[in-house]
Design a protein around this nucleic acid. Structure first.
Lengths: 147, 147
DNA sequence: AGTCTAATGAGATTGAGTCTTATTATTATC
DNA sequence: GATAATAATAAGACTCAATCTCATTAGACT
């Protein structure tokens, strides 16, 4: 269930940040709370709007600061779709990650994962002889609804 | 040689645009001429600066217009590294493409291609059952110089 | 040459994201 | 529970790539 996942994630986030010796704060709690309920990628602007709709939006700077912090600690993944704004999405504590397809028609983001792709990248890293620490993969195409 | 490649590409670009029934223009010629000499990805701002250094920079709007046009016709590839500005790079007429690794230290872009990766994506597309028309792959790591 | 239309230039405008600085809240310590 | 040290926040000015507008210029065809 999304609710349980969100709750588990929230707990994990609190634990990681506490372990890092950080204090708590209202803006952070609100951003974390929102990300916990939404499993799809939100942009900073969407986060600001959503929180303002609740009548309690933190300053813009705080939102970006919180998001940067969460990304640094591997708690949130930054997803760039090429539309000029970054989006942010909860990341599983397990470290397992997924990628996205952007629908060329409706713009929807569809998540997927693929062990074969991960293997191909691992082999590629070895072949290149460069230290590869991460990868972003974005597919373009049509989602089930639009196809 | 880069020079020959650039010349061949320029010729190809002219042919494609002429076939599309487009007129020629100074701004376009200058942007194409610059991209022909540079094989690595240039941002619009870098293009503007480079052309201004020659004392003949087109207006900013023209540069973006030309780049959009070239991307639409598959003559130039848009590369997004996540630093908030798009970069543009000649694309081979053959259609074969490559991907990039961004060095986390020096920011350099290193190009590579990998048939295994392409195969993995083809298999993935089939498995997903969605129409996949393209993909962007970006690796993060350290280039040979920095490693 | 004349006409139609694409191409261009200059600058205003947008909008995501960053920076600055004063203020507030949290945690540890006494 | 008061205090001190410092992290967190708010508000808004600011940056800068990218877009938009619209008047002007210049290709290509007759």
């Amino acid at each position: 269930m999304a609710l349980d996942e969100g709750a588990a994630w929230t707990e994990h986030v609190r634990a990681v940040l506490a372990r890092a010796g950080l204090k708590r704060g209202g803006a952070r709690e609100r951003v974390i709370g929102l990300l916990a309920t939404e499993s799809c990628a939100l942009s900073a602007v969407e986060i600001e709007d959503a929180l303002r709709a609740e009548g309690r939006s933190p300053g813009r700077a705080s939102i970006y600061r919180v998001l940067d912090l969460l990304v640094e600690h591997g708690l949130v993944e930054r997803v760039e779709v090429g539309d000029g704004q970054a989006r942010f999405e909860r990341q599983h504590p397990s470290g397992e990650h997924h990628h996205h397809l952007v629908c060329e028609r409706c713009g929807r983001l569809v998540a997927f994962d693929d062990p074969g792709l991960e293997r191909a990248i691992a082999r590629l890293s070895a072949r290149l002889g460069m230290r590869v620490s991460g990868h972003d993969i974005l597919l373009h195409g049509q989602c089930e609804r639009c196809a």
